[in-house]
Design a protein around this nucleic acid. Structure first.
Lengths: 202, 202, 202, 202
DNA sequence: TATGAATGAGCGTTCATTCAT
DNA sequence: GATGAATGAACGCTCATTCAT
């Protein structure tokens, strides 16, 4: 096969995978993680069930693809932010805003990524859950903040967990009730609380 | 049927439901949310599968009952704390410690209650997840704190969400990795962070 | 449950298993070992597919049951013959005659028992294939014959293999072409050849 | 199309068929009869799956071709031996030795040819299994032996069946347990038993 | 003619629900 | 009311075959 033909084939495969991905996301949105069956993905993608297996060896592999594809832009942005010459607090805020924006669109896929126990099991083998990755990244920011003297020398692991938990639940509330909170505003509220605490400034 | 007979019948029904509940919790603990089948619940409860349907119209209804029943002691404790003559921060800490202790015993049921997508759907129909209630209760504490002048006048809804998120994820991490963090300590860390914030005390 | 009820239940279960067994044999006969699907067994037995799983945990278990049930009477007879006070040659002849009669009825099940590679795999785990069991039993007869001085001191393992092979292929030819050879006659021919050999008596 | 072009085409087709045959044998060897899928044959042959259907109308036809092609050298050798000026017993021994050697190399294809139920059905349609041919050929040897006065005037059909059965099961045992019996020795044991019988020489 | 993606019937298995006893 | 066998739709997955390129 010529190089050109090969390239074209790769493109077609990539497009099919994307189509299946989108179908899966639709199913996820309409029926939840529980309702994500290969039959429904196939139907939603407009292909035969067997065809899915031309692109993904198993449902598990499809799940991993969805995970990867969804989380990828977030991860890229995170790496970018991490490398940027900004104070820790600003990095945190940027990341939170991005997360809120990124997942604001779609409740099904968010649950699937962060909360579905099946997904977690599948992912643990190869990639870690989105949650674990998020915690790890956040820790880096907290450590930077401490090093800069901007944060108290708290337990970064615990802090990262609490912070991510706060972000996730904020997102979930928004998705669950279709709230209309600008990401900007939510991020600011989060940072304000975590930076300054509840106690009145003396 | 006489009133007495009626009363007795109610009692019997209630006991059966409780027995089934306990069986379900056992199954949940041993096999996870995925493994919670009517067969297994029936077997663990020592009744016939068909009998479950005399007490719960469907699996969905059983799920709702489990939810309710599990949440109940937490709710009771919360009401008690709420009524107590304590400063907001102490109330928060007490509640957090109780939650951590209450769910530390049992990973299966926790996942089931907060994260299982099947459960989630079911719950949304009737009271839109246990989270809501927790948030509502927490709001009261934050409002009290503000009224007392102990807290800044922040958005209590958002704060409650963030706080609950932090608690939940802290719990989950602990359960997921079988960490050995005393509830006392975790509660203290949570309170410290939310009260004082990340910024160094000036 | 009373002892009586228990006994009745056992009987019902046993009858269902037998019914399923017969259905499986029918399918085996009509469609061969390849065509033995759970769907077809269920249909032939006049029950829903799911019901099969109330009596057999898996297809493998059903296969083992068929194996056992079919081979059981042959095994019983063999044990009886083995214990009887007869010369080795007569024992051999009796067993061969029994085999030919026992399997004369049904080609499907015979193939399934002795030749189907799938069956072999399944059986190896728990029971040995019919073939192995047959060889082992035959060896005993040859050893007896040698001890009695009626047979030459040949390699009993090999001899048992050859003998069983001869029996099996004789059976298969008969089944394959629906020949009308009396078991009696076939057994006599087998014994004559194996005892006296091809060479003319000097 | 010119005669030459036709001839060339035939050659190409024949070579392709042979290539596919070899691929099928490889698959058979590596994965067993169960694992012989058109996908794997195509992959092993280095052609597209669809191409297989240019040379064989169906999997069934491919199976028949494999059968034919595998049996062929044995058949050729048999014809050769048959025509040779040797006593019947020596011919028998030569053929048995050849068979044992021919199939000793390869368990997968042997099972496939003689025991796989799928194959069996296919073969029955067109030539009722390779066995028949073997039996027919063996009969000729026994008839020769009788004519020469070297064998008793036994029923040659039955004898041929028993003999073939003995050979086949001997082979199968060897393959199933990976025994290390030289073909020479096995052939000698077979002949000794069939010629001289079990009874002690008087 | 060669290709290989698309197909869809079929596989073994699970499980919430029903219903005759 | 209690039972548990029967049900059948649904699941993830396979693979012989087809057909547009």
């Amino acid at each position: 096969m010529s190089r050109l033909a090969k390239r074209r084939k790769e493109l077609v495969v990539s497009m099919m995978k994307d189509g299946i991905y989108e179908a899966a996301v639709r199913v996820l949105t309409e029926r939840g993680a529980e309702g994500l069956t290969m039959d429904r993905v196939a139907e939603s993608a407009g292909v035969a069930k067997g065809s899915l297996y031309n692109y993904f060896r198993s449902k598990c592999e499809l799940l991993q693809f969805i995970h990867e594809k969804t989380i990828e832009p977030a991860r890229d942005f995170l790496a970018e932010v991490r490398a940027a010459p900004l104070p820790a607090a600003e990095k945190l805020q940027a990341v939170v805003r991005m997360w809120l924006e990124h997942f604001a669109t779609n409740r099904g896929i968010f649950d699937f990524l962060f909360n579905d126990p099946r997904t977690r099991e599948v992912m643990e083998d190869c990639k870690r859950s989105g949650r674990l990755e998020g915690i790890e990244q956040l820790r880096a920011f907290f450590e930077q903040g401490i090093a800069e003297g901007a944060f108290r020398p708290i337990d970064t692991q615990r802090t990262a967990e609490m912070f991510l938990g706060a972000v996730i639940l904020t997102m979930e509330q928004q998705l669950m009730f279709n709230l209309d909170r600008p990401a900007e505003e939510s991020a600011a509220a989060l940072l304000d609380l975590f930076l300054n605490g509840l106690k009145p400034q003396t």
